[in-house]
Amino acid sequence: MNKLKVSVSPHIHSGVTTQKIMLDVIIALLPAAVAGCLIFGARSLLVILTSVAAAVLAELLFCLACKREITIYDLSAVVSGLILALSLPVTMPLWQVAVGAVFAIIIVKCIFGGIGQNFANPAVTARVFMIIAFSKTVAATATPKGVDAVSSATPLVILEGTAKGELPSIIDMLLGKRAGAIGETCVVALVIGGLYLMIKRVISWHTPVAFIASTFIFILIFTGDPKTALYHTLLGGLFIGAIFMATDYSTTPTNTMGKVVFGIGAGFITSVIRIWGSLPEGVSYAILLMNILTPYIEKLTRKKPLGGDKA
């Protein structure tokens, strides 16, 4: 008789892998990426490719330099690069895009120990870094291709009242025909991607729904105007943030209650920044702040195990 393998149960595995999950996220981001290319032109593709290539290369070089196992095949660097690119305007100089992507991977992810160990979302943190480092180019607004440039200001700035201009129609906003970052404008494409992730059970609906709904409700409370609240909900980076950034595994709570708390907290911070802050956009900061609170949310929302005591 040949020698048998002996191991502890379970002896089968579901077949879910990190790589498959990341691949699903990439697939879910494709509609938004394609929409971005259609709305803002071919340079969008260049921005996306630069960001992804820089992110992957940065991780590869970091692994080689630190003599660590090469982890680029888990595709998480691709996801980070992709999300970062989609949250940048199409006019961004490519070298700045690359710097941002490298920052996301090296500073935010790798030096904290790589995938799963970072406490802040790489793409969000890199975007915040870029707002500070390259404030002019990040704030620069790109108007959709083929649409008359009615204003050089993004709708959010118009809503704030600091710039004059006409607000796009609701239909245009759903389709993404408005000024903004490459991947953030087409709400329809983002929702399609989000639904795909929910069907594939990669993310749960709790965070995005809590985040988006609470932003709407808080702005409604703060301004008392449903139209303003609706515009705020569809504008800026709320949908890409709620669907793709606030659902990042490493930096958000794992349990359902925690996800709801995270979403509402992020919605609150977004609303406060948008209404009273000096910045037009608050999604990135909201997510980043909630990322920092995640360990506490996780601890406080831990549920009572069956037959056990309250944690």
Binding site: V16, T18, G116, Q117, Y249, T254
Partner: peptide, 12 residues
């Protein structure tokens, strides 16, 4: 075995 990605599947 690879690194934990904190996805929460085990928790849920």
């Amino acid at each position: 075995t690879t690194a934990c990605i904190h996805c929460g599947r085990c928790v849920n």
